[in-house]
Simulated scan of single mutants.
Amino acid sequence: MYWVNSRSAKNEQTGASFRIAGKAVEIWHPETGAKEPAHYTVENSRTKVSLQHWNDRR
């Protein structure tokens, strides 16, 4: 399990690369407990995940 946090108040789209492969990837929203499948690829035993943060606290 990895915790990824944005401290920015602006909308952002980025990616992350993890040194693991062969696992299911999902996004967990701690404020609601909701889970959703993540968009990812596996290259050279690394899992690359597309992440986006939309600030809905405006």
Results as ranks from 00 to 15, higher is better:
39 H>Q: 15
6 S>I: 02
49 V>F: 08
57 R>P: 00
42 V>P: 00
30 P>A: 10
48 K>H: 14
38 A>Q: 04
18 F>K: 07
42 V>D: 02
54 W>F: 07
45 S>K: 15
25 V>L: 06
33 G>Y: 08
11 N>F: 05
34 A>I: 08
12 E>D: 04
36 E>W: 01
37 P>T: 10
47 T>E: 06
43 E>M: 09
32 T>Q: 06
6 S>T: 13
30 P>R: 06
14 T>S: 13
15 G>P: 02
3 W>R: 13
20 I>E: 03
43 E>I: 12
8 S>N: 11
10 K>N: 13
8 S>R: 14
35 K>L: 02
11 N>W: 07
24 A>H: 09
26 E>D: 12
3 W>D: 12
34 A>G: 00
27 I>W: 00
23 K>D: 03
36 E>L: 03
2 Y>M: 06
55 N>S: 12
11 N>I: 05
34 A>K: 15
4 V>S: 04
20 I>R: 01
42 V>G: 01
20 I>Q: 03
50 S>E: 11
28 W>V: 12
34 A>N: 12
36 E>G: 07
54 W>H: 11
14 T>M: 12
50 S>W: 04
26 E>R: 14
58 R>D: 11
37 P>R: 09
57 R>H: 06
1 M>N: 09
37 P>A: 15
53 H>R: 03
2 Y>C: 04
12 E>V: 09
26 E>Q: 14
19 R>I: 03
30 P>S: 07
26 E>V: 09
9 A>D: 14
21 A>T: 11
42 V>E: 12
39 H>F: 09
4 V>Q: 05
6 S>A: 08
22 G>I: 08
32 T>S: 15
20 I>G: 02
9 A>M: 11
18 F>E: 01
51 L>E: 00
17 S>A: 15
18 F>A: 05
31 E>G: 02
48 K>D: 10
39 H>L: 14
25 V>P: 00
15 G>W: 12
17 S>T: 14
14 T>L: 09
3 W>P: 00
23 K>S: 08
35 K>Y: 03
16 A>G: 15
56 D>N: 05
55 N>G: 06
15 G>H: 07
34 A>S: 10
54 W>P: 01
17 S>D: 07
52 Q>D: 10
23 K>H: 10
2 Y>R: 09
51 L>K: 04
55 N>E: 11
6 S>E: 01
41 T>F: 07
45 S>M: 08
27 I>V: 08
15 G>Q: 11
34 A>D: 13
3 W>C: 04
31 E>A: 13
14 T>C: 13
13 Q>R: 07
49 V>W: 05
46 R>H: 14
39 H>K: 15
48 K>A: 08
52 Q>K: 04
40 Y>M: 07
8 S>H: 06
6 S>P: 00
21 A>Q: 11
12 E>F: 02
40 Y>P: 01
43 E>A: 13
5 N>A: 08
40 Y>V: 01
23 K>E: 09
27 I>P: 00
54 W>L: 11
3 W>G: 02
50 S>Y: 05
49 V>E: 05
9 A>S: 14
41 T>L: 12
49 V>N: 07
13 Q>E: 04
10 K>M: 11
43 E>W: 05
24 A>G: 11
24 A>C: 00
24 A>S: 14
